[in-house]
Write a protein that binds this DNA or RNA. Structure first.
Lengths: 304, 304
DNA sequence: TATGATAATCGGAAATACCAATTAAAAATA
DNA sequence: TATTTTTAATTGGTATTTCCGATTATCATA
């Protein structure tokens, strides 16, 4: 049986894949360029296959090389986890935890969440990162993040998830408009193009439309906002109505406005909130405890 | 950041855990005893924790050591998989696949299965192993086996599963008894203590009792058999009736007997057949293709 | 008390990992 | 076009690590 590749060489390969440049990758690994170069050659020899196509000046990862990178990532991160685990004397709630959250959830949970985690697991080092669903999924794949807090349904690619709970949508309008619209909401009473939503990079626009059965309605305004807070300001300026998730209202996003929240049409006008992680992780237990903490903060907790 | 442990030292630890003896473990790894000894010490230093308690003469793995062994196993096997994968130029249906099957399934699928896999994936090296559910689960944990074909429901511990299909139970009686019993079966027409089952090491006894709603019936005979073929012989000798899964009947287990198969009472008198694997595996795609092949051989295929 | 088995330790030899300097080739710039 | 810069591979030498055989220390047991 041939010898296993060394973790060192695998980490060289990962750095090279990330930097796409031998010098920068070598610097990243704190070794000389020649060391990294021969490390890669060594690896190719051991694996008995071509990982990168040399182009005399530059290079390109082969298809096989890309796949080896994927697998190497899992091995390296499992090894890092083993190291942390052992150094923490087996305490799984210790060390860094890199959590990615989408912008329509983050501001309404991170305060309470980090406070609670800090209390219960003082050695856990929560590192938050706010980004769009697509970017977060990419960074999860990279190994740059450990878990993601997303709104579902969503294509989570090869990953696994727990559904933590549900977050109802409310139609938010100026109080002077509330009576005209009624409750539950009758969209026909709203002027055309008077519903404002987030730009489509945010999944919330789609979720709200689907959950509230508003597909292709002429009621939607083509102008889109980039944050829930902007939407609230637009509604407060009587430009129209909008959908705001319950968790934002619970955190007083409507304070100091003249807005009211109405229950939209549709039995279950809500989005699901889920925690997403790589199927190859070996930190399920850690993630699970975090999942429980997050679920307790949601308007409707559906975690087992 | 501290240095990652080397795969070599991790494999020394695994060998030591398996052999529980430095000399044998060293032989296993093809290194000297001193090398293995210092490898372990080295590892403890790097991980900054005690993995084994030295007792001046012998030793014992600490709780933390046991857990590190678990995690190390995953890392080593992921590395071996990477090696195989790369050496096979990325062909996931290549190299050894160690499949464990329980005795009440094995004889009725392995013939067709190995033939079909051989045709479709000639480079796949299927290594079969027949054992009880409990032993198989233990060997899966060990890394001694890759996947298990089991009857469900069953506590599969921390593992993951796919349900491949369903296998109905039939009540098998001598043809001279068939008319008395009727169809669907009226158990009251059977004499007391006339139903024979497998010994309780086999999960099938429990599954049959549950599926056919026979709990604690006085109809059961306390004498138990060790194989389905014995049960068939006993029924053929008019000692009583028994339950036989459809897949066995499909493979002509009743040939050259005077037995008939009757539909038992109960809407869904059947067992589920599932494929079980470690959650940390990185060979899901390979396993999935095997799952599809197995599902095609079952009486009722329920795999997506 | 001797014997055998065990794991740790020690010293030296072999293998390797690493670096700095150099080379070679292409790209960017003058 | 000539020069400079950037890039990865190669080379040769050094430092480090790994490994082995021999030895030691400890215990169980004959």
């Amino acid at each position: 049986m041939s010898k296993l590749p060394s973790l060192k060489n695998l980490s060289y390969l990962l750095a090279l894949h990330q930097e796409q440049n031998f010098n920068r990758a070598a610097a990243e690994c704190n070794v000389s360029q020649s060391t990294l170069s021969s490390g890669i050659q060594n690896l190719e020899e051991q694996l008995n296959c071509q990982l990168i196509e040399r182009d005399h000046k530059s290079f390109l990862f082969t298809a096989l090389g890309e796949e080896v990178v994927e697998k190497a990532r899992d091995i390296i991160s499992a090894s890092e986890e083993l190291l942390h685990y052992a150094q923490g004397q087996g305490n799984i709630m210790e060390g860094p935890l890199r959590l990615g959250i989408i912008p329509t959830i983050a501001p309404f949970v991170i305060g309470e969440l980090s406070k609670n985690l800090q209390n219960k697991f003082p050695k856990l080092l929560l590192q938050l990162s706010e980004d769009t669903t697509q970017n977060l999924l990419h960074r999860l794949r990279n190994g740059e993040l450990d878990i993601l807090l997303l709104a579902l349904p969503m294509d989570i690619q090869g990953n696994q998830k727990w559904v933590l709970g549900r977050d109802p949508f409310k139609l938010v309008v100026h109080k002077e408009l509330a009576e005209t619209v009624g409750e539950p909401v009758d969209y026909d009473k709203l002027p055309d193009r008077s519903i404002f939503l987030l730009e489509k990079e945010h999944c919330m626009a789609g979720h709200a439309v689907a959950a509230c059965q508003l597909t292709d309605s002429i009621k939607m305004n083509p102008f889109t906002a980039t944050s829930l807070h902007s939407l609230v300001q637009m509604a407060d300026a009587r430009l129209g109505a909008t959908f705001i998730p319950q968790m934002a209202i619970d955190r007083d996003i409507l304070e100091n406005t003249d807005l009211v929240a109405l229950k939209p049409t549709g039995q279950e006008a809500s989005r699901d909130i889920g925690l997403v992680y790589r199927p190859t992780t070996s930190r399920r237990q850690t993630f699970r405890k975090v999942a429980e903490e997050i679920a307790r903060l949601l308007p409707i907790n559906t975690l087992n």
